[in-house]
Design a protein around this nucleic acid. Structure first.
Lengths: 224, 224, 224, 224
DNA sequence: CATGAATGAGCCTTCATTCAT
DNA sequence: GATGAATGAAGGCTCATTCAT
C-alpha cells in the first residue's frame, strides 16, 4: 500500500479517536482495507485481518467493538472526503474565480477526482461494494450529498447557464449527465481498469470536450 | 416480484435443464434472487432462501449442488442476455437500416437497455455486486464483451464517423463515453433510484441529445 | 464380482424371502457389498448403492426397511455359513472317517476355509469391520460359535488327544492356537494380501505341519 | 480410562506440539479415543466427542483442523510405537545376549506385546478398524514394517535357524506363522476377550511352546 | 493493554427415509 | 412395484466475540 494511504489512515484514526495512533491500529486498518477489498465485508474474516496485521485476534476488538465497526471506521470518513473536499477546498476558488469557463471547471474537477480515486482506490471499492448492504452508510451518503453537494452544484450549473455555456435544461439532468461521465471516467480509470494503459491527458481532454459540447446550448434552439 | 420476472426465471431454468420447471424450482430461484439481492451472496444463508421459498433446506441442494451453483444458475444466463440481445436482435436491424441517424440508433439502444434493466433489475444488482468476487463470472463477462460486443460497436462507430455524425476520435473513447452515459442512465433509473419519479421520455431525449452533441464533430476543428 | 458370488447372493435372498429373486434385488445386494466393503457401513451412502445398482434410491427401501437391514441381510447369513457348513457338511464325513489323522483333518479344514474365504472375501471383510459396532451381530456370532462350533470342536480335539496326536493341554487352548493359525492363514491369503503371489500348496503344507508339530505331545513330558 | 492411558496421551500430544499439554487437550483426546473406539471413526460425531470432553465443539477444531486430523493425531504415533520399540529396546538386548534360546526370545516378545496391547487396547482397536479406510495410514504402516521390522526379523530367524532351533523353511513363512500366533494371542487377550478370565502365565507358556515345537526342525527330515 | 484459547451460534451440505405419482 | 423429489435432522466446520491471564 502506498505511503499516501498510510497518511490517510493515520488521519482517519485521529479523526475517530483523536488520540495517539499506534502502529498496531494502523496495521489493523491496513489489513482490514486489504481483506475487505479482496473478499468483501461478509466473506472477510477478522482472524485473517488479525493475521495480516500481525496482531492477536482479540486485539482488533479492543479498538473496534465489532467487525462492522471496523468497516465503518474505514468507510464513513471516506464518504465525507469523497464528495466534500472538492467543494470545500477546490471549488470555492473555482467559483470565486468568476472568469473561469465551464470547461476549466470540469477539467479541475475531473483532475481532482482522479487524484482522489487513485489515492483511495481500495477503499472506494469497499465503499461501493458495501453501500447496498448497510443502510446507515447509504443514508449518510445520501444526506451528505443532498445537504452539501446538490445545492452547490445547482448553483454552479445555473451560474454557467446564465453565462450561456450550458443549455437550459433542468439542473438535475445536467448534474446527472455530468456526474455520470466524470464518475465513469474515474471508476474505469482507477477501479476497473487500473492495470490497462491510459493516455490520461488525451482522455481527460476528450471527456471534458464531450461534456462541454454535450451540454452546450443548441445554436438554433436554445440560443438567441 | 413481477410476473415478467417469473417468466424469465422459467426461461432460465429451461435453459439450464431443458426440462419442465416445477413450481418449487421457481420458488427457490425467486427466493434466491431476493435474498442475494438484499444481503449479497456471502451474507445470504441457504436456510433463509429455503424458508422464503417454502421448501426444506435440503431441497435446494437437490437442484443446485452448492450455494454457488445457485448463484451461477441465476447470473450466468444474464451475462449472455445483458450484452447479447441488443446486438443480435435490435442492432442488426438498426445497422441494416442505412438511413438511420446516430441519434435514432442511440435512442433505440437506450430504450432497449432500459427495458432490459427494468425486467432484470434485481439480478443485475446481484451480478454487479458479485462479479468482483467470482473470477469465473468476471472472465465470462470479459470474454463475451470482447468477443461479441466490442468489434461490432467499433464497426458501428466507424459507420457513423464516416457519415460525419461522430467526431474523429478513437472508437474506444467514443464507446467509453457513450456506454458510460447509457449505463449510468440505466443504473440510475432502474437500479439506484427506481423509486424516484422519472419523466422518462424527457430524460431519454436529453440523454440522447447529450451524447449526440457531445460526439458531434467540431464545426471548426473536425469538419472541413 | 465373480459368478460364484452371484449364485451366493441368489441363495442369500432366497433364504431371506423365499420368493422369486429379481435382478433388481441382486443388483442392490451386489452394489451394497461393494460399497460397504470399500467405505465401511457408516460411510457408505444408500444413494451410491442405488446408483451402482442402477435403481432408484427409494427402491432399496422397498426391499430393506433400513440401511442397517441391508447390512444384516448380507452379513447374517454369512455368519451361519462361515462357521457352520464345514461342520455340518464336510466335518461330519471327516469325523466319521475314523481313520483320519489330525493332520488330514487340519488340511481338509484349512482347504475348505480357504475356498470359502476366496468366495466371500468381500463379505467377510464387511463382517469383520462391522461386527464391533453391531452388538446383535456380535451376539449372533457368539451364540452360533458357542452352540454349534465349540462343543463339536472340543469333541474333535479330545478325539485326537485320545489318539495321542495332540498334547494333553486344555481343549480351549488347542482351539485358540489352531484357529489362530488357520484364521490368520485365511485372512492373510484372501483378505489382506490377496494380490501378492502365493505358493499355496507349500504354504498350506507348512501351516499344517506347524500346527501338528506345535500340538504334538512332548516325547518326554506328555507321552509315556 | 486408565492412568497409564493418560500418561500416554500426554506423551502423544507432546510429541505433536512439543508444548505444554493442557487438560483440555487431554480431555479431547481421551474422549476421541473413547468415541472412535465405540462407534468407529465415520459414525463418531465431533459433537459427542466435545460433549464427553466437556468442551465446546469449536474447541476441538482449534487443536485439530479436521476430524480426521484428530484421528491421525491418535493413530499415527501408535503405528510407530507398536512395531518399533520392541525391536529397538528389547530386541537389541535379546539379540546381543547370544546364549538366549528362541524360546526365551519368543517369551520376551510376547510378554512385551501383551504389555503394549494392554496399555493401548482402545487405540489399537481404532487403528485396526480404520486402517482399511485410510490409505495413508495403511501406507505408513506398510512402510514402517518393511523398512524397520522385516529385515531384522529375518536376521533373527536365520540366527536361530543356524543354531538349529528353527526348521529350514522360508523365513517369511516362519514370520507369518509366529506373528500370527503372537498377534492372535494379543488380540484375543486384550482386544476381543479382555473381560474373560485369563490364566495368563499358563497361556503364555503354551503359546510359546506351541510356536517353538511347531517350528522345531523335524528329527527325521531336517536334522542330520 | 495485548493475547489467544474458548465459546456456541450458525453455516453449508449430506443422507436415510417417506410418499405421491 | 418402482420412482425420485422432498424432507429435516445431523454433521463437520467457521467465525465473531469474550475473557482470564
Amino acid at each position: 500500500m502506498s505511503e499516501r494511504m498510510d497518511q490517510w489512515l493515520t488521519e482517519l484514526v485521529r479523526l475517530n479517536e483523536d488520540d495517539r495512533v499506534t502502529d498496531r491500529q494502523l496495521n489493523i486498518l491496513r489489513a482490514a482495507v486489504e481483506v475487505f477489498a479482496e473478499k468483501g465485508f461478509a466473506a472477510a474474516s477478522t482472524s485473517e485481518i488479525a493475521q495480516r496485521a500481525g496482531v492477536a485476534e482479540g486485539t482488533i476488538f479492543r479498538h473496534y467493538k465489532t467487525k462492522k465497526d471496523l468497516l465503518l471506521s474505514i468507510t464513513v470518513p471516506v464518504i465525507d472526503e469523497f464528495v466534500g473536499p472538492f467543494l470545500l477546498r477546490d471549488l470555492e476558488t473555482i467559483l470565486t474565480a468568476q472568469h473561469e469557463r465551464f470547461e476549466d471547471f470540469l477539467r479541475a474537477v475531473l483532475f481532482n477526482r482522479l487524484q482522489f480515486a487513485k489515492k483511495y482506490a481500495q477503499v472506494l471499492r469497499i465503499l461501493a461494494q458495501e453501500i447496498p448492504f448497510h443502510p446507515e452508510l447509504k443514508a449518510q451518503l445520501k444526506q451528505y450529498v443532498t445537504e452539501n453537494v446538490l445545492k452547490r452544484l445547482v448553483g454552479i450549473i445555473e451560474h454557467f447557464q446564465e453565462k450561456g455555456e450550458i443549455a437550459r435544461i433542468p439542473a438535475r439532468t445536467v448534474i446527472r449527465l455530468t456526474v455520470s461521465v466524470i464518475l465513469s471516467h474515474v471508476v474505469l480509470r482507477h477501479i476497473l481498469f487500473h492495470d490497462a494503459p491510459w493516455r490520461d491527458d488525451e482522455e481527460i481532454e476528450m471527456t471534458v470536450r464531450f461534456i462541454v459540447q454535450g451540454l452546450r446550448p443548441d445554436a438554433s434552439r436554445d440560443q438567441k
